[in-house]
Design a protein around this nucleic acid. Sequence first.
DNA 1: ATGGCTAACATGGTTAGA
Length: 261
Amino acid sequence: MSEETFSIATWNVNSLKVRVSHLEQWLASRLIHAVALQETKTQDEAFPTSDIHRLGLGGDWHGQRTYNGVALLAREPLTDVVKGIPGYDDPQARVIAGTVRGIRILNVYVPNGQSVDSDKYRYKLEWLARLQDYVHAELGRHPRLAVVGDFNIAPTDQDVHDPKAWEGQVLVSGPERAALSNLERLGLVDVFRRFDQAPNSFSWWDYRAAGFRRNAGLRIDLILASETLAKQCIRCEIEKGPRHWERPSDHAPVVASFDLT
DNA sequence: ATGGCTAACATGGTTAGA
């Protein structure tokens, strides 16, 4: 890897407090320049700042008690941090943006939606419409834009272990996939699909019913890059290693590397 | 079989995740 390689990771850690040792172990074995975390489940006052600094990372975070929470961490200074979606009064802490090495990174934790007939599903679709407007504006300002995170949408049936069982369910339903397509049509590329990948590549596996052992998963953690940035993407992989460890997150980290020369 | 497991908050059982 050249000095101009820049690697961005996204990882839903399902409680940063519980997973900080996994983050440390994982980061020790590779060079990640920026990492976007979701479901930190930590208020900002209680954020494990000293642990993060010990890992050689700085950055910023946007959390709340019990639920949600996002952090954007990097080995070099993060500038122009924005928390939440501007103009959208959302009580749930789901978005943080910042610029590092000339790349604008939007870290998103898209609402789960629970089930297609729930109020949470309607909130999810409303939320995605607000994200659409935000990303549209950001693309106009930043030629190198990465929108990364837990999208809680499996883009196609290729990203679903059992498409028949999941048909029409939350995370794969038509309106959610349409919202994701609309986002991509603004000019974003799902860089994972720019490369050859093993069939049945997933980023999340249910804790229940031996989901990971059976590879009964979904690919819902995505790295979307603007066309200018996507052209510089040299690899994108799901790192299943930490999912094997003791007391894992139900999500695996996803990493994309860019050649910025 | 609408369960299975994990985490937060709490200290038993509910809420939420996906």
